[in-house]
């Protein structure tokens, strides 16, 4: 019951993040949705993923969004069509009806790959079995850092 309420709150705040016209309010709604997602993770015994969700997604990504909104300051410039907000409930209800009828039969048809349950604690699984993932993460972080440096590089006078 509580899980369903949390999932509903997550969906509602995600809808608000998409439909709210004020970009700052939309970013804050997204952060609140992340907090609900983190609580769901905690309730599913995924504590480390929950901590990452709160600190990185609800914290860092919201800060990045708010700084971008502050740096651009032109939310009044882009006018979203009012039809988008009006049509959303109709499409959403249609989708939920299709979802309820189709998803159960679809999920039963999916092939499930049996994977042995890991032994030990989370640290042993992360550092022992998923070591290559960590190497990939380091690579992705460096790629992101170099991409941001390249995008904010000052122009030389020769280029102008």
């Amino acid at each position: 019951m509580i899980q369903t309420l949390l999932l509903t709150a997550l969906v509602i705040f995600s809808i608000l993040a998409v439909l709210l016209r004020d970009l700052l309010k939309a970013a804050i709604s997204l952060a609140i949705a992340s907090i609900f997602l983190a609580i769901i993770f905690f309730r599913m015994n995924a504590t480390y993923a929950g901590v990452f969700e709160i600190s990185v997604v609800a914290g860092l990504i919201t800060v990045l969004f708010v700084s971008t909104i502050a740096l651009t300051k032109s939310d009044g410039d882009v006018r979203e069509s009012k039809v988008v907000s009006i049509l959303f409930p109709i499409f959403f209800v249609l989708f939920i009806i299709i979802d309820i009828f189709v998803m159960k039969t679809l999920l039963n048809r999916l092939m499930v790959v049996r994977y042995p349950a890991p032994t030990g604690n989370f640290g042993q699984v992360l550092w022992g079995q998923r070591t290559l993932d960590l190497v990939g993460q380091i690579g992705v972080i460096f790629a992101g850092v170099f991409a941001v440096i390249a995008l904010f590089r000052k122009r030389d006078k020769k280029d102008e």
């Binding site: 969700e53 700084s67 971008t68 651009t72 699984v125 992360l126 993460q137 941001v148 995008l151």
Partner: peptide, 28 residues
């Protein structure tokens, strides 16, 4: 199999942050 799922989610979050940082820089 929550341990594997958690490690995959953490990897996904790291990729997400990197993508967000780059995309927001492009938007600016």
């Amino acid at each position: 199999n929550i341990y594997i799922a958690q490690s995959l989610t953490i990897t996904f979050i790291v990729v997400e942050v990197s993508v967000v940082a780059t995309a927001l820089a492009i938007i600016i």
